[in-house]
């Protein structure tokens, strides 16, 4: 077993563990912290089904962002939707037999890699050109975009120019999953792609990528607008109820 294979195998195990545990800790924190007041941004849904629909529109269509900024919406949506289909396409490296959804994504997937890259470049352009966005950006905000651009760029280069041994890549990743390690092709573009992916996985729970789980816990978006109909009290606040005058 080559050093390279062992090194990347360990790297992927470590990055996966970090991402999963890190996200679990964050999600647990969000889930356990009470929201003591009803603060949905109104007008908001007045039923649970309505909340599910609202979140669905936010996650799938970026509804609020569409109201807020058409350009960010366009680029952001291209990027995310592109990335989603690319990732679904990537499932072919991790499933045998290949999942049927991953197969479905094969044909359009190619264009969506380009769409993803175009969206990212658009977002970077806005961040550099609009004075308000420059003002609010920290180095990490640029680096995150550059990281994703580099991942998409190396992926597309592999796809169209340098090519790699996809069968071997798949064997390596299936091997990782089955604890039966297989050699990883020593192919520069692939190694850069994979290294960057490891970085992305590792920073996920420590960065603004927490917007992905965060959106589901946002009280302004996930609460039902029914404060008059149902009493809503957080455990820490219910202790203060004792100061209330009894009603009978």
């Amino acid at each position: 077993m080559s050093f390279l294979t062992v090194f990347y195998a360990l790297l992927f195990y470590a990055a996966t563990a970090l991402m999963v545990v890190g996200l679990a800790v964050k999600i647990r924190q969000y889930a356990r912290t009470p929201a003591p007041f009803k603060i949905p941004t109104t007008p908001g849904p007045i039923t649970r089904g309505g909340v599910v629909a609202r979140l669905f529109r936010e996650v799938v269509l970026f509804e609020s962002l569409f109201k807020g900024s058409k350009w960010s919406w366009l680029f952001g949506w291209l990027f995310h939707f592109g990335m989603l289909v690319v990732l679904v396409r990537h499932l072919r490296y991790f499933t045998e037999p290949i999942w049927f959804v991953a197969l479905l994504a094969q044909d359009i997937g190619v264009y969506l890699g380009m769409a993803m890259l175009a969206g990212l470049i658009g977002l970077l352009g806005r961040r550099l050109l609009v004075d308000r966005l420059r003002y609010i950006s920290a180095p990490s905000d640029y680096l995150m975009l550059l990281l994703l651009i580099a991942i998409a760029g190396t992926g597309l280069l592999m796809k169209y120019i340098t090519h790699t041994d996809i069968v071997a890549v798949k064997a390596f990743f299936l091997g990782l999953m089955r604890a039966d390690w297989q050699p990883l092709p020593a192919d520069a573009m692939l190694l850069v792609h994979l290294t960057l992916v490891v970085v992305l996985m590792a920073v996920f729970p420590f960065s603004k990528l927490l917007h992905a789980p965060g959106i589901f816990f946002s009280p302004t978006r996930n609460q039902i607008d029914n404060p008059r109909e149902r009493r809503h009290v957080a455990p820490w606040a219910s202790k203060l109820d004792a100061t209330r005058a009894p009603s009978k």
Binding site: Y30, A35, P36, G68, R126, K208, L210, T220
Partner: peptide, 18 residues
């Protein structure tokens, strides 16, 4: 620890500028 909005809002902002 008392207001969930705080950790979620402080973590989630992507500086999209909207």
């Amino acid at each position: 620890t008392k207001y969930r909005a705080l950790p979620v809002f402080l973590d989630a902002c992507v500086k999209c500028g909207a």
